[in-house]
Write a protein that binds this DNA or RNA. Structure first.
Lengths: 386, 386
DNA sequence: CGGGGCTCTGAATCTCGAC
DNA sequence: AGTCGAGATTCAGAGCCCC
């Protein structure tokens, strides 16, 4: 990694810059640092399968010239046969192909990649992603509350940008905090359109002359939602087009590690100052609403074993119409002789393909029919204390 | 044009089916008719540069897996039709290339082409468009007010589809009724995101058996806005994937001519009956359903995301006796370990059945304890501007 | 006749871990 | 790698019945 020029980042001890062993223990990562240079070279210098998330806001006003040369000056003739399907391959597609291929290598199998853009480039990027066998999970629309108006009155106001959330393959199982997103959206599923203001005011970094430090600085709110939804505390988030470091600032705030790649020294200087000022939120604060799937499994038989529900107890459906009796091993039996788990018997009686027995079955308590799930919650609470 | 099989359409005299001289006066067009057959063949049989607009809702290549059921165990009726099956992405690209090339030939130099899709196909379509030197004017987001939820809790709700509005070249000067669009949008510029409901109720065409006549019928409101914004009365609008004829119905209503291309006889039969019933609107009646403007719901998490309230901030009841801390997803946590929404935690601490967290919780500001609702008002004001 | 409650449905790449 | 079983999972809106 001798060609890596590591730019020091004044981090707090809680978010220290380190060369940390990765999951495989075979290499190190430059955590919470900004590396100056070409992002493809820099990514290729990192170990494969080492980062949990890639967030990329690639430039789309590239003027690479007509010579179709890559940043490392290798020639286009060396490209693989994958290129053949393109009639009008231009330099932007080459650029996209190269950096996405490098990003693919460093991303973990179950990691998430986010790429954003506008209609100028997002169709190119989306196509390259799919051609490289990335699997799109969602396309997300960032609806700007305060977009730049169309001054000439010749088109619709360009009021949104598109983000693509993808994984390395169809079989990837990415982190997705469904319940936290639902909580964030007032109790209903988070949709694929996000309404957020553009970056203005104090959040917008300025040069000493008072101009914009970066032409396309993204709002921290956008990164907040991206990072919170599809990563975990302690994860490593790589941003190959770091700019003035919005990804790093939000990652630090939310207790994630970042790796920033950026060519321009000016942007790096702004990003360093900015990130140094960020205070990480406490461990408690970055906790989010737990998903039920992550709760420990409790066999129904434990309720019987522990005497919460006696053997022979009659259980009922919510309105009491259907019933079954509890047996010693935690199975249920109906009057017509069907027997099986709480789920199987519920599915049988309702003639459904499946059934969640925990919410389907009720016992007759002092306050009427009560779901057996209340006992499970009780056991889980005890387990949490222990 | 001997291979054209012209399917008669019972049009009113005001909207008669004709073989009309086109602008060049050298050929005729099958106006206000539905032609049965392959859309590429049919388009190639039409004169070049003869239509003012192409609207296309091509197959999306969804690549659905097995059956999907709702949480109540009912089955989702997916798109399983043969016309949406493609062996590979390459074959889909080839298909897109062929029909777009044919569409390009029949479109006038200053005409508009609209293509819609989802993340499954829209990046492919957009890339092919650009490769064929079409010039994108806008990408438009159709935000569905009532999308199908994500039943497994695995992703963000897929709540939108994308439309691309393009012209044949950068120098094209398409029709765009800027002021009409501004009028439709309560006096401010029409944005690139359109909030409209999906096609349901009486508008949705049914088979005799009561099922869907077409699995992907689009709402007339969507076509209304497309046609009104980028065409003139008397224009010719070609739809190569006519289906059950939404484009034709809205074109007739708005005093435009249509040409529908469709392979399936069943769809054509439905479309003919439907369009025959449409009464062309007088110029007076060509007015628009305004977008609904109800007070937008603001999740508490937006305040956190946007940095108005920091993660870990302590919130207080009006007199400061009760408190809880803010977490990253907008949930609150009390010292004794209870967690939930601002409303749930408020209700818990006051032992009440319910609680309006917006007025219950306060942050410590410069002027003492201030209700968090003040921030909600601020966000609503911003959204109202948008 | 109005309102409350119940049912049905929509372009969907929709589970996971143990064995 | 495939199979099997546990068990987690939905929002808006239209239509209809009933009181």
């Amino acid at each position: 990694m001798s060609h890596l020029r590591v730019v020091s980042d004044n981090s707090s001890p809680a978010h220290s810059q380190t060369e940390t062993s990765d999951a495989t223990g075979t290499a190190t990562l430059p955590l919470n640092q900004i590396l100056q240079g070409d992002c493809v070279d820099l990514m290729n210098s990192l170990p494969a399968g080492s980062v949990d998330m890639v967030f990329a806001d690639p430039p789309y006003n590239l003027q690479l010239g007509g010579d179709l040369s890559r940043p490392d000056n290798s020639t286009v003739n060396g490209v693989t046969e994958a290129w053949d399907q393109y009639d009008t391959m231009d330099s932007y597609d080459l650029f996209s192909h190269d950096w996405l291929q490098a990003a693919r290598r460093v991303l973990k199998e179950d990691g998430s990649i986010w790429v954003m853009g506008s209609y100028h480039n997002i169709f190119r990027v989306g196509t390259v992603l799919q051609d490289q066998k990335f699997w799109i999970q969602n396309d997300i629309i960032w609806r700007k509350t305060n977009p730049m108006p169309n001054f000439r009155g010749t088109r619709f106001t360009n009021a949104h940008e598109t983000l693509i959330w993808a994984t390395k393959s169809e079989s990837s199982r990415p982190t997705f905090h469904y319940d936290a997103m639902k909580m964030m959206n007032d109790g209903v599923q988070m949709r694929s359109d996000w309404t957020l203001p553009i970056c203005t005011g104090h959040e917008r970094l300025k040069t000493e002359g008072g101009g914009k430090a970066h032409p396309t600085q993204k709002p921290e709110s956008l990164l907040h939602r991206v990072i919170l939804s599809t990563s975990n505390p302690g994860d490593v988030i790589l941003d190959p087009f770091f700019g003035t470091g919005t990804t790093g600032a939000v990652a630090k705030k939310l207790g994630r590690n970042f790796i920033g790649l950026e060519r321009e020294h000016d942007y790096i200087a702004h990003a360093r100052k900015r990130i140094a000022k960020v205070r990480p939120a406490g461990t408690e604060a970055i906790k989010i609403t737990r998903s039920k799937r992550s709760e420990p499994r409790v066999p129904f038989a434990h309720l019987v074993e522990r005497g919460m529900i006696d053997i022979g107890t009659k259980l009922f459906s919510a309105k009491g119409k259907l019933s079954a009796r509890v047996r010693a091993d935690g199975s249920l039996a109906t009057e017509d002789g069907f027997e099986g788990s709480i789920h199987k018997v519920g599915a049988h009686l309702t003639d459904a393909p499946s059934c969640n027995g925990w919410t389907f079955w009720h016992f007759m308590g002092a306050k009427g029919l009560t779901p057996i799930d209340t006992y499970r919650s009780q056991i889980r609470a005890e387990m949490a204390e222990a």
